[in-house]
Amino acid sequence: MEQSSITLSIENVTFGFNGKELFKGIDLRVFQGEIFAIVGTSGSGTSTFLKLCVGLLKPWQGVIGINGIDITTVSFQQLNKIRLRIGFVFQDGGLISNMTLLDNVALPLRYHTALHEEAVMGIAERRLSLVEISGYEEYFPAQLSMECKTRAGLARALVLDPNLIFYDEPTAGLDEDKSDSLLRLIKRLRDESGVTSVVVSHDMDFAARTADRIAVIEDGRMKMVRGRVKGEG
């Protein structure tokens, strides 16, 4: 692992809702190519933490750096540019319900690139093949199982070749076999493409099997379970 290359850095982040503090001075560094798991009980704010990391929410104070750029101070246009290097896999895929799976995966390419339709389709089909759901191209999200939706969400997250992917509860609603299959896929992406992964889960067992390092969010603070959170490298 290249310890000198920090993909995600969080410094002294404090955030809450309606004046009530949810996170207190959180510090975190995630390095290029590692799989980092954040475990928390329901309501501990793990999903909120991911939203802070991708700029969907703004912290009360602190710095959130992605690939060396502080996303709390950039303009909306700059933030959208930074997001091109980020993937985000929602709990149920976060797919657009009135688009087929292929159109969902092709969406970022159609919006952000000037590629011809044939090239777009080619890339989208390859990503669906990579996450092992070829054959479902013309299905709509409502017609798919939870696992398929999560995999399709991952295919869409991968389509612009990001170097950092956030997973929000990727194994929620999946049995052990399917969780293992997804785990292998996350590790394969790390090994083959060097993609950094930040995985949020309630399942400590899954986190232990997946991650290089694990942190737990408890009482608004991040505590390290495996590895050290602060001052790595």
């Binding site: 969907l56 997001r83 091109l84 985000f88 976060g94 319900s97 970022p108 952000h112």
Partner: peptide
């Protein structure tokens, strides 16, 4: 409204897709 509930709006934002433009 349904897109908001299903987190499709958030998904678009995370993909860097402008809600106002798209």
């Amino acid at each position: 409204g349904i897109m908001s509930v299903n987190k499709e709006i958030e998904a678009l934002e995370v993909m860097g897709i402008s809600i106002t433009r798209f």
